[in-house]
Design a protein around this nucleic acid. Structure first.
Length: 544
RNA sequence: GGCCGCGUGCCCGAGUGGUCUAAGGGAACGGAUUGCAAACCCGUUUGUCGGCGGUUCGAAUCCGCCCGCGGCCUCCA
């Protein structure tokens, strides 16, 4: 059975049919870098990462193509332009996000809360964006996002919006030329709009056709603030604004681009060339035959379906397809939202977590192993609302520990388990993945098999490694640990006060004064440290 | 109001018409082990599958309606 994925575009499960099965092109809408990415962002990015890893895996079979090797060119953009809204009515305060982030960073700088070694001017939007981009890349690599790991060798895989403004200007010009966009307003306050009625396919992805939008009772396509637009649904491509915090020169005056145009440019620029990045001039030249996708897979959070992806389709097809129509992406992949402890994440409820708040060691974070975070975020089917819980995180952490023990044991063993059982397990896992990425099914098969293998050997380890190349869990770094003669500190420092207590406890135990040793354990618990005796006469110490 | 996704035990979740008296992982309980714990190991416990109706010899699985939760309808992963 070949790989099938739920395609948002056609609302059904469809086999993935890339144009070139040896080189699958994949674009993911990445983060906006005015703050640290939270675990909800990462759930979506990780789902895309698992999909690309599976396509690259020998376990994967694609319709109409032979076995691998196969590669995926996966591009994830970094949106480092702050203000991208069209009408100020959409955003209550209408304030630029980069400006807000700047104020926040300025406060942190004053109170000395910025990490050491960070040189940054809170008044510079470029500095703010660079700061959060760097942090995002750290987080992404910690959680095993392959695109971020590859980015170290090929920076073009994670293009920055600010570096692609010339391409956007070129594309906007092309859209005007082809009759899909128009300029309104006097010099000094010019605006370029995409004319939505000029694209017949509008609404195909989201169901929000122009008719539906007009009828929508809760819709916000009002008449106010629409002056100059030919149609209420027309959206911004360029806004002339010489006072804006980030601005570029253009044929329509100094200003900034609309939100949607960057993805049309960055996806085509990196994925439509043969390994190189297309220049603005090449983008203007580029033409794709009708009914042929421009890229194979496009992913993003479910909230991006409309308007962002709908508008992206309109722009890309009108700019690149021969007769201004086409699917743009063959497969649209949209993971659903993440809940935390049964509720929507919100800062006021106290259930809002950035990735680094979880994986950083105490006291900045909770010292949770990245592998546990990753597994917890990927194990709920991507098309369900997942619920991120402390209990679930513990479950995931235990599963990872079990797999690691299996690997350790297998590394020491010389003979492997029953080959037929191993083959059946591999096949069942592949079947589960081919069916719209059924990871829970994979875990069921995997854990069942693991439990039945008493003495794993090299071939067993090899199978687990092959599966983990898709899940991407075991390769992640383990919680930072520090060893001393007596303790193994996981996710925390070897505090001298704690070491003194541990030594005291060893003496007490040696003297068989168990009342005292228990009291010391309680003391440590009161200080926030959990301890347990482990192999080798050492004590494992965890914070929290 | 429109379009879309989801709904299985205490929790996470597998299951896509018969082998389902429903996988697997946790949790709880009991045992083994331990100075006591932790970890590991063994065993036990928990469900008729959101509701109602239909199709069928047979439905968690297909269809219809309803209920609940969630997303979008121009900030949002």
């Amino acid at each position: 059975m070949p790989l099938s994925i739920y395609n948002t575009l056609n609302r059904r499960l469809e086999p993935l049919r890339p144009r070139d099965p040896k080189r699958v092109t994949f674009y993911t809408c990445g983060p906006t870098v005015y703050d640290d990415a939270h675990i909800g962002n990462f759930r979506s990015f990780l789902a895309a990462d698992v999909l690309r890893r599976f396509i690259e895996s020998p376990l994967c079979e694609l319709e109409g193509s032979g076995p691998g090797p196969r590669s995926v060119v996966h591009v994830m953009n970094i949106t480092d332009v702050g203000h991208m809204t069209d009408d100020d009515q959409a955003d209550g305060g209408g304030e630029d996000k980069m400006a807000v982030a700047g104020r926040r960073l300025l406060e942190q700088k004053k109170s000395g809360k910025l990490p050491p070694g960070v040189e940054l001017d809170p008044n510079s939007p470029y500095d703010i964006a660079r700061f959060y981009t760097m942090r995002f890349l750290d987080d992404a690599k910690k959680l095993g996002l392959k695109v971020a790991i590859e980015h170290d060798k090929d920076a073009s895989l994670m293009p920055r919006a600010t570096a692609n403004v010339p391409g956007m200007i070129a594309l906007i010009g092309k859209l005007i030329e082809r009759g899909h966009a128009y300029v309104v307003g006097p010099a000094g306050a010019r605006v370029v709009y995409f004319h939505v009625p000029s694209f017949e396919g509008y609404g195909a992805l989201s169901g929000n056709t122009l008719d539906a939008l007009r009828e929508g009772a809760g819709g916000r396509v009002g008449t106010e603030n629409q002056s100059g637009k030919k149609h209420p649904a027309d959206f911004l491509l360029w806004k002339e604004d010489s006072t804006h915090i980030m601005k570029w020169d253009s044929p329509w005056g100094a200003g900034y681009p609309g939100w949607h145009i960057e993805c049309s440019v960055m996806s085509a620029a990196r994925l439509c060339g043969s390994g190189s990045v297309l220049s603005p001039a090449q983008l203007v030249q580029m033409q794709v035959p009708d009914a042929q996708p421009i890229i194979d897979i496009h992913s993003g959070g479910e909230d991006n379906i409309f308007p962002h992806h709908e508008c992206e389709i309109a722009q890309s097809c009108c700019a690149f397809n021969a007769s201004h129509s086409g699917p743009y992406a063959g497969m649209w992949f949209h993971p659903r939202f993440l809940f935390v402890e049964g509720a929507k994440m919100s800062k006021s409820k106290g259930n809002f977590f950035t990735a680094r708040q979880l994986y950083l060691p105490a006291p900045e974070g909770k010292g949770i192993a990245p592998a546990a975070i990753r597994l917890e975020l990927i194990r709920t089917h991507y098309r369900s609302n997942a619920n991120f819980t402390e209990q679930g995180l513990k479950d995931s952490a235990r599963m990872v520990e079990r797999w690691r023990r299996f690997m350790d044991t297998a590394g020491k063993g010389s003979t492997s388990s029953d080959a037929a059982a191993r083959g059946a397990c591999r096949e069942a896992i592949a079947a589960a993945m081919h069916d719209d990425l059924n990871i829970a099914g994979v875990l069921g098969e995997l854990n069942g098999w693991l439990g039945r293998v008493d003495a794993p050997g090299p071939e067993d380890a090899e199978l687990l490694r092959e599966i983990d190349a898709v899940l991407g869990v075991l390769e992640l770094e383990q919680a930072k640990s520090a060893q001393t003669d007596i303790g193994v500190f996981i996710g925390c420092e070897a505090d001298p006060a704690v070491l003194a207590k541990l030594n005291e406890r060893v003496e007490a135990k040696k003297a068989k004064d168990f009342a005292r040793s228990d009291a010391i354990r309680n003391d440590l618990a009161a200080m926030g440290y959990q301890i347990k005796d482990v192999a080798g006469g050492k004590v494992e110490v965890r914070r929290g």
